[in-house]
């Protein structure tokens, strides 16, 4: 194998890890600020200018806090569960093209770690494994509330994975490829998936709704039970182990925003600087929308959530796929 290729891949992995770990920290800051402004508060203000150094303070607190492993838990599983959440979130990033390819010092960089021909399927698969973080964490915690919330979280995750998969089938059928780069090329030539085809628009909305369940964000935030006044599967965790769950959640939000922007909203388009900026803007909008929804909506009940998945979204997604098939045949 080419030495330059190995070095380039290693550098890309390190850059993605560093950038998105940092972004997870900034994500918490943005979340607190956005929520605060929507609720007519100021949010973090005291540490640094406009509370910007709050991230550093939080980081120091999380890293230096005592790592408590309660007695009665299943030690190794309890310790590895947060690592699974964070690791699977970052593994999914391997198949995402973050920017169009560019040339720096005469060397062409492809900002995608592994351009596999099954990209989107790989991302779905790795995100499916992400379920094991909360699940094993809850089961190993030896705490009945953790266990219940892990069960609820896993049920929601598995149910909404059906919707995600079926919603993605429509663009897959239209484009006929699983690589995210092919998605981008097709949309650069034929217009954005969400607006060029009516079925594409429906599947975009379905995927968007399911993304809230996949990342466990607020209208579907039933992995942590607000009404039980505890933090769900994370109840027994402290310090950086709890922080890893958090990093995983925020990284997942960013990556699913990238996937939505690339699959449905044209990605980086023709690959110019404007296209790259456009992609980042779309991702920023999706991320902001996650926070906006959290400020605007309360959590739904678990039975309402299941009703929405199996009686509304899933039938809609199936009909959508069938209609796409019929349209493509004639």
């Amino acid at each position: 194998m080419d030495t330059a290729f190995i070095i380039e891949t290693l550098v890309k992995i390190v850059v993605v890890l560093l950038v998105f770990s940092a972004l997870a920290g900034f994500g918490t800051y943005f979340e607190r600020k956005v929520l605060a402004f929507m609720q007519r508060r100021l949010g973090p203000m005291h540490v640094g200018p406009y509370g910007l150094l709050q991230i550093a303070a939080d980081g120091i607190k999380l890293f230096t806090k005592e790592d408590i492993v309660p007695s009665g838990v299943v030690g190794p599983i309890f310790k590895i569960a947060p690592v699974i959440t964070a690791a699977t979130a970052f593994m999914a990033a391997a198949a995402i093209p973050f920017l169009p390819e560019f040339t720096i010092f005469g060397y062409t960089v492809h900002p995608i770690i592994a351009d596999v021909n099954i990209g989107i399927l790989y991302i779905l698969g790795v995100m499916a494994i992400g379920l094991y973080g909360p699940l094993l964490g809850g089961m190993a915690s030896n705490n009945k509330w953790s266990l219940i919330s892990a069960a609820r979280g896993a049920a929601i995750f598995i149910s909404y994975e059906v919707v995600t998969g079926l919603a993605l089938l429509v663009p897959l059928m239209i484009i006929g490829s699983l690589s995210l780069l092919d998605f981008n090329e097709y949309q650069a030539a034929n217009g954005w998936m969400a607006f060029a085809h009516p079925m594409g628009f429906i599947s975009f909305i379905l995927f968007w709704i399911a993304a809230f369940a996949e990342t466990g964000r607020t209208p579907f935030h039933l992995v942590a039970n607000d009404h039980e006044v505890i933090d769900g599967f994370g109840t027994e965790y402290s310090g950086m182990r709890w922080g890893l769950f958090f990093i995983g959640e925020y990284a997942n939000m960013f990556f699913i925003s990238f996937v939505m922007a690339i699959v449905f909203l044209g990605g980086f388009g023709d690959g110019t600087v404007m296209g790259a900026l456009g992609l980042l803007l779309k991702v920023a909008f999706f991320f902001f929308f996650f926070l906006w929804t959290r400020a605007a909506w309360p959590d739904v009940r678990p039975d309402q959530l299941m009703w929405l998945c199996w009686k509304v979204l899933m039938p809609l997604a199936v009909i959508n796929v069938v209609v796409t098939g019929i349209v493509m045949m004639f």
Binding site: L124, G125, V126, A128, I129, Y132, I158, E161
Partner: peptide
């Protein structure tokens, strides 16, 4: 990938 999705993602869950 199907092996991962089906066995780890669904059956083991």
């Amino acid at each position: 990938v199907v092996q991962i999705i089906v066995y780890t993602g669904a059956v083991m869950a």
